[in-house]
Design a protein around this nucleic acid. Structure first.
Lengths: 225, 225
DNA sequence: TTCATTTGTTCTACTCTGCGCAACAAATCT
DNA sequence: AGATTTGTTGCGCAGAGTAGAACAAATGAA
């Protein structure tokens, strides 16, 4: 059997993927170059995307992502009844550790920062909600790789309780600790993590943080009916 | 000239539109019914959407919106450098009026609640960020219709300063006041609004709120380089 | 358990969509 | 003004995408 797919749809979606934090507005030719599609083709695909509000054109006729994405994105996040329960947990983690707390979910073969509460400390690990990182490194990355992809190498890095720590792995100045969220049915939802500057979040602090994160993850996991 | 469009892409997007707050998870047949597309067709389109993370299947194989939407939605919202500036303004409005404050942007021929800060009062006008309402009614609706669509009827309802009030219009128990955000180049961005229960937000309170909203909208408008 | 029913996937043939490309138009720069 | 870049439109062919049915898998009933 052949994997079914619809080419033009995937082309259209790849147009959306061309946008990023650093490139929030693109001209037709830029999109064309970025995606490798012909300009005429992009023009037509973009027209359809625009109709549905997935793209819009700013005053100088450049393309930007459209409001429909935000609307559907909000719907997506609502699916996680988690939202209501995760935020307080993150805030609690920030209070208890003084560091930044985040919640990651798998997005394709990468990981997505779904929720985040930043440390009050001016020197902190900063990252935006909606940011996407690799699953190949970082404490949360390993947890996701192990539970979502079923990666054995990653699984080997995990503690018996499923938690994982990393020091200066993805970013040389950051250490972190993460634990999985798994509901009663065994369904994996994502990873809870605390991260901060390596200097402050040293071996000792990490060990303490690990206990807190694991406990919070347990509580959250239980909270999912 | 014929309006360019790509049929399969629009079909795919209409699949995403089939999801809503009340129907966050759909089976293949449900999508098929909702969109009027053949099941085999939905199956293939959905496969492509799934590949790109716009859809995912939950444990019972039902379709749900995917994380890519949230990621891109976050990017979209970032485009509004507004975000950073709007939130504080909304909070300030809540503080000054005691009612709920929101920021709406146009989304196709409707309006989308992009940011919202709720009143601390237990009896308040509740609505979620990401919710979509008509442009045909409500104070913010008229402002958007007037400035975005250029609707003359709506324009006639506006005050000289562009503001607009409504009492029990969209919802019989809610009154509201809204004002437009327009940057130095004349570009319209959206509407700032304060809304609350009709009983509390009466004629008198509305008049007071209008002044506050208009002032905030002015300040915000100026804040956009 | 077995049978019935619903739900989802796979296959095929035909049609018309979507594609590449080139010619055209519009905007921007010199 | 002319030159160059950027976006749109027209056209014909290839083949992508569709409808429909047949098949497979899951679910429910008995």
């Amino acid at each position: 059997m052949k994997q079914p797919r619809v080419e033009s749809v995937e082309k259209a979606l790849s147009i959306l993927e061309a946008f990023s934090k650093d490139r929030p507005a693109l001209t037709l030719t830029e999109i064309s170059v970025e995606t490798g599609l012909y300009k005429s083709n992009v023009s037509r695909l973009a027209a359809s995307l625009e109709r549905y509000g997935y793209l819009k054109r700013d005053p100088n006729r450049r393309f930007r992502l459209g409001p429909a994405l935000w609307r559907l994105g909000a719907l997506y996040r609502r699916n996680f009844e988690l939202g209501e329960s995760v935020r307080p947990v993150l805030r609690q983690l920030v209070r208890e550790t003084g560091e930044t707390a985040s919640f990651y979910v798998p997005d394709q073969d990468e990981r997505l920062c779904l929720y985040r509460e930043n440390s009050p400390d001016p020197v902190r690990h900063h990252l935006d909600e909606g940011a996407r990182l690799t699953m190949q490194s970082g404490a949360a990355g390993h947890v996701l790789a192990a539970f979502h992809l079923g990666d054995d190498t990653a699984r080997a890095r995990l503690d018996a309780d499923g938690s994982c720590v990393s020091q200066g792995e993805r970013n040389p100045h950051i250490s972190a600790v993460a634990a999985p969220i798994i509901d009663a049915t065994g369904q994996f939802h994502g990873a809870l993590a605390v991260s901060g500057p390596l200097e402050r979040l040293n071996r000792e602090a990490l060990a303490k943080a690990r206990a807190v994160v694991v406990a919070s993850a347990r509580a959250l996991s239980r909270g999912l009916a």
